[in-house]
């Protein structure tokens, strides 16, 4: 059972790597969805023997939400806002890979330091931390608003896995609360992106800085 869980953890990390380098927006959305579904399998493997019916239902709901509803919403938002096909990263491919690797190394160091109960599944804590870092990476180094939403989703996936590591028994209540937040967030962001794009004809966050009072070049004159 644990071997399977470990494989899933490795897969999640590889998905992080893939997320940090993927150039296509649609591919990125799908990767996030896959990550959510894969992470959703994890609680089913947690206990011994067959999982409870309640766990199965919750897991199925989460997988449906992350694997079908969110990607559908996001793809729709992408099409409606005319966000284009590319992710438009601010840093190069090698830098992204190295940052992602560095995040993983840092989280394995951090994971070995944190006083957490032993889950028996190797790499679950570093993987969750690395996933959170990857989410931050997506938020900070991509120029489009929609990738920021994706970043939040990846962070949520990370928190979900982290929750599994923390409360092997009942992560679902915590998870549901977070999920609700994120659901609202995605909804709001989807609408917001749509409106921003209508107002400004683009959803490039770099352009949002035009709204600031601070003007490049005027400062210090």
């Amino acid at each position: 059972m644990h071997t399977l869980a470990e494989l899933i953890i490795v897969f999640v990390i590889l998905l992080n790597l893939a997320l940090s380098v993927t150039g296509g927006l649609a591919a990125c959305i799908r990767l996030v969805a896959v990550q959510g579904v894969v992470a959703g399998i994890l609680p089913l493997l947690a206990g011994d023997g067959a999982p409870h019916a309640r766990t199965v239902i919750f897991a199925a709901a989460i997988m449906l939400l992350k694997g079908a509803v969110f990607p559908w919403l996001l793809l729709r938002a992408r099409d409606r806002s005319g966000a284009g096909k590319d992710v438009e990263p601010l840093i190069s491919y090698p830098a992204s890979v190295m940052l992602c690797l560095g995040a993983f190394i840092a989280s394995s160091w951090l994971g070995s330091r944190l006083p957490l109960p032993d889950t028996g599944v190797a790499w679950i804590v570093p993987a969750s931390l690395a996933t959170i870092f990857t989410g931050f990476l997506l938020i900070t180094t991509r120029s489009k608003a929609i990738t920021q939403v994706l970043g939040y989703l990846v962070i949520e996936n990370g928190i979900y896995i982290f929750g599994l590591a923390l409360f092997v028994e009942q992560p679902l209540m915590v998870e549901l609360a977070i999920l609700l937040d994120v659901f609202v967030a995605v909804f709001v962001m989807g609408i917001a992106i749509f409106h921003i794009s209508r107002e400004f004809d683009h959803i490039d966050t770099a352009e949002l800085s035009e709204l600031s009072d601070w003007r490049r070049g005027e400062y210090g004159k």
């Binding site: 490795v10 990390i13 590889l14 790597l17 380098v21 491919y93 090698p94 890979v97 190295m98 992602c100 690797l101 993983f104 190394i105 394995s108 070995s112 190797a122 790499w123 570093p126």
Partner: peptide
């Protein structure tokens, strides 16, 4: 570089076991 990332990940997995 992707290949490097794969083998680096493999090494990290193995070392942190």
């Amino acid at each position: 570089i992707t290949a490097f990332a794969f083998s680096a990940l493999a090494l990290i997995f193995q070392m942190g076991r």
